[in-house]
Amino acid sequence: MTPSGIITLTTDFGVADIYVGVMKGVILSINPQARIIDLTHDIAPQDFKGAGFALAAAYSYFPAGTVHVAVIDPGVGTSRRALLIQTYSHFFVGPDNGLFSFVLHSRDVQQVIELSNPAYFLPLQSTTFHGRDVFAPVAAHLSKGVPAGRMGRPVSDPVIASVAEPRFVDQRTLQGEVIHLDRFGNIITNIHKDVLDRFAQGDNFTVTIRKKKATRLVKNYAAGRDNELFCIIGSTGLLEVSMNKKSAAEYIGAQPGDGIILQKQS
C-alpha cells in the first residue's frame, strides 16, 4: 500500500494540555512532510468504544494509505500490547484494548502486528505516554513508506470487544442499543438504515428509550416540532433519536449501552 502521507489523531487528551502538540512534534520530526488531521481529542476519558465509533464513522473518508492513530489507553505501561493493523486501504495504530474492534470485525484486515521493534520508537519510552513514545513515531515511519512488517511480529489474538447487533425479536419488534451521544445530544443507535428499512417495510413505528417514546421519522432536524422527540437517519446512516434545538440525551437521561425497542404501530 502506498502511504498517503496523512496521519489522523483520535485521543481522549483534550486540548488544554501539551499531549496532542507533542505527538505532532514527534511525527513532524520524523516526517516533516506529514499532513496531520485532528479527528477528535474530545473522546470521554477511557472511552475506547466511543473512540471506536468515531473512527468507524470517519476513516473511510480519507485517502487510501492514511495512518489512523488512536490513543485511548488506560492500560498504558502495563502488559497490554501496542498494535498496528493493516487493512487493504488503511493503517491503524494504537493500544490493544478493543479500540479497533470495528476494523477487526471486518474482512479487510491484511495483518495485525504487535509493535515490538524499538528501532521505530523514541529512544526512551515512558510508562505513561505511549502516544508520544511509540504510536506517533510508528505512524510517522509508516507515512514515509516503512513496511508494516518491520515494526514487529504478527499476532492472531488481538482484543476484540463485543459489538452489539440489532435483534429481530419478532415481525413487529426490533431491539437495538445506544452506541453514542454527540455534543448536540443526539442519541445514535446501532440500527442502520438498511436494517430499519427491512424491519419497517414502509410501516410506522415507535421507538422507546428509558420509557420515552418517539413516533415520527423525519428527514432533517428542523422538521422536528417544539419539544418533540423524533427519529432521524443521521449522516452515519444510523438511526438517531433527537430533538429540535434541544438535547434528546439530556431529556431522556440516555447513556451508551441503553437498550432501545422499535415496535411497529398497529
Score class of each variant (00 low, 15 high):
Pro3Cys: 05
Phe13Thr: 05
Gly14Met: 14
Gly14Thr: 14
Tyr19Gln: 09
Lys24His: 10
Val26Asp: 01
Ile27Cys: 00
Ser29Glu: 07
Pro32Val: 05
Ala34Asn: 07
Ile36Thr: 00
Ile37Trp: 07
Ile37Gln: 03
Asp38Thr: 11
Asp38Gln: 12
Leu39Gly: 12
His41Glu: 08
Ala44Cys: 14
Ala51Thr: 10
Ala54Pro: 09
Phe62Trp: 05
Thr66Val: 12
His68Asp: 04
Ser79Asn: 15
Arg80Pro: 08
Arg81Ser: 01
Leu84Asp: 00
Gln86Tyr: 06
Thr87Glu: 08
Tyr88Val: 13
Ser89Thr: 13
His90Gln: 13
Val93Gly: 01
Leu99Ser: 02
Phe102Leu: 07
Asp108Asn: 09
Leu115Arg: 03
Leu115Tyr: 04
Pro123Cys: 10
Thr128Ala: 11
Thr128Glu: 10
Thr128Met: 12
Gly131Arg: 01
Gly131Trp: 02
Asp133Glu: 04
Val138Thr: 11
Ala139Tyr: 01
Ala139Pro: 00
Ala140Thr: 00
His141Glu: 04
Gly145Met: 09
Val146Gly: 06
Ala148Cys: 08
Arg150His: 07
Gly152His: 06
Ser156Met: 11
Pro158Val: 11
Val159Phe: 12
Ile160Leu: 05
Ile160Glu: 02
Glu165Val: 08
Asp170Gly: 07
Arg172Ser: 14
Phe184Ser: 05
Gly185Ser: 06
Gly185His: 03
Thr189Arg: 01
Thr189Asp: 07
Ile191Arg: 02
His192Met: 03
Arg198Ser: 14
Phe199Ile: 14
Gln201Lys: 15
Gln201Val: 04
Gln201Ile: 03
Asp203Ala: 08
Asn204Ala: 15
Asn204Arg: 14
Phe205Ser: 09
Ile209Ser: 01
Ile209Lys: 02
Lys213Cys: 12
Tyr221His: 06
Glu228Leu: 02
Phe230Thr: 07
Phe230Trp: 04
Ile232Ser: 11
Thr236Gln: 11
Glu240Tyr: 12
Asn244Phe: 15
Lys245Gly: 05
Gly253Phe: 04
Pro256Met: 08
Gly257Leu: 06
Gln263Lys: 14
Gln263Cys: 09
Ser266Pro: 15
